[in-house]
Simulated scan of single mutants.
Amino acid sequence: MPEPVLRALGEDGSSYDDPSEDLLFDLVGQVGDGELEFLIVERTTDPNGLTYVQTKLGEHGDWLVERQEGSIHRHYETVAQDSHDAHRMVVGWAFEIPGWDLGLSWARHDPSDWHGLPAPSEGLLGRIRGFLGRRPGTSPK
């Protein structure tokens, strides 16, 4: 059986290899319903685990969508207006749909701007990995 290319993760310990667009829709919906705090979809082909997209519901009903492209120096965020928008961004990134990010305004984060906050590689995704008891590119125990 081939190794998965994508893995979806929730803070509740859920993990799904090669999630479908429909499953990602359900998982984003769980974030919106409060069943999950956030959703991360990572590319398992990155041995360092630094290539992923993540989304969570913001304090004011908007959706934060972040992506990282293999390095903490290539970490970006934008805001989606609703769960459908967030789903479209997550799916576009995950399945590398041409033009998925056209018209979106991405803010780049410089690691020096985190002022003592955990870097993305050590923050949310790192906490998920710690919770799941695994390292990048490995399956949960």
Rank of each mutant, 00 (worst) to 15 (best):
H115W: 13
Q54I: 00
D113R: 10
V79S: 07
H84T: 09
S121I: 01
S121G: 14
R74D: 13
W63G: 11
H87W: 14
R74G: 03
A86E: 07
G70L: 05
I72R: 00
E96N: 01
D101Y: 03
G70R: 01
H73Y: 14
R108E: 12
E66T: 10
G58I: 03
L57P: 02
L102N: 10
S71D: 15
G103H: 00
H60R: 13
T55F: 00
T78H: 15
E66F: 02
F95C: 03
H109Q: 11
Y76K: 07
P111Y: 11
Q68G: 03
E59C: 07
S105Y: 13
D113N: 12
S83M: 14
D101V: 02
H60A: 13
S71C: 11
R67S: 03
H73Q: 13
P118H: 05
D62R: 09
E69A: 07
M89S: 10
Y76A: 07
L57M: 14
M89K: 09
H73M: 11
G58M: 06
V79F: 10
G116R: 04
A107C: 00
H87L: 15
H115N: 14
I97A: 01
P120S: 01
G70T: 04
T78K: 14
V65L: 06
T55D: 05
A94P: 02
H84D: 13
Q68Y: 01
H75T: 06
T78Q: 15
Y76N: 05
H73R: 13
L57R: 13
K56H: 14
S71R: 10
V65H: 04
D85K: 11
W63P: 11
L102P: 00
L64A: 13
M89E: 06
Q54N: 08
P118R: 06
H75K: 00
R88D: 11
W100Q: 03
E77P: 00
E69K: 04
S83F: 09
M89H: 06
D113M: 14
